[in-house]
């Protein structure tokens, strides 16, 4: 394949995802050093009385509890109905006691570091248009990581194949990666 074409693919695959990649690198460090930033979220509990009959009632509860994000879990049993909602900065649990007809909303607002980590942890196409757009970005990032890695290796072979240091780094990386996977898969 043409060198210039591969170079363009390598470049554009990276350029299209650079903002998300920088976010991932930054938030990965936040996750690795999470103890440094560990703060408990601000917890707010709200209790509301009243029967839940329809989806509109749930919408009213979401508004009353100032809940943000998409629904991540729904459990309905005889005694209790539970819905959980989350976005990058908030996690909320709404539980409705069928017997007493009382709803408890527990809302957890995260600090900045954990809200940023929350962006890193978002995935999936369900939810709002923003969630869809972010999931689409994630797919592009996933594909780009694979494409610009592979095209980078092809470019190396075309341009600097005889570079001894490059071979040492590549071989050491491959060996380390292969031994790690082997030990994980075949160790006790």
């Amino acid at each position: 394949m043409n060198y210039q074409l591969i170079r363009k693919i390598h470049l554009y695959a990276c350029l299209s995802t650079v903002a998300v990649l920088i976010m991932f690198v930054f938030t990965s460090y936040l996750m690795i050093h999470h103890k440094t930033f560990d703060q408990k979220p601000i917890k707010t509990t709200i209790e509301i009385e009243g029967v839940i009959n329809s989806e509109e009632d749930w919408t009213g509860l979401i508004e009353a509890g100032e809940i943000k994000g998409r629904m991540t879990k729904e459990i309905q049993n005889e005694n209790e109905w539970i819905r959980e909602y989350a976005n990058a900065e908030q996690f909320s649990r709404v539980s409705y006691d069928v017997g007493t007809k009382k709803t408890t909303i527990v809302r957890n607002d995260k600090d900045l570091a954990h809200a940023l980590i929350g962006i890193h942890r978002q995935s999936g196409y369900n939810g709002s248009p923003a969630n869809f757009a972010y999931a689409f970005l994630l797919d592009i990032v996933g594909l780009s990581l694979i494409i610009f890695t592979l095209t980078g290796v092809i470019l190396w072979f075309k341009l600097l194949k005889s570079d001894r240091i490059a071979w040492i780094i590549f071989s050491a990386g491959l060996l380390y990666f292969a031994v790690t996977i082997y030990m994980l898969m075949h160790g006790k």
Binding site: L138, G142, F170
Partner: peptide
């Protein structure tokens, strides 16, 4: 190039995992 080669296998894992 050296930086890319050092981290390329990890990037492949991250890409597939994402």
């Amino acid at each position: 190039l050296y930086c890319g080669l050092f981290t390329c296998f990890y990037l492949l894992a991250l890409g597939a995992s994402s």
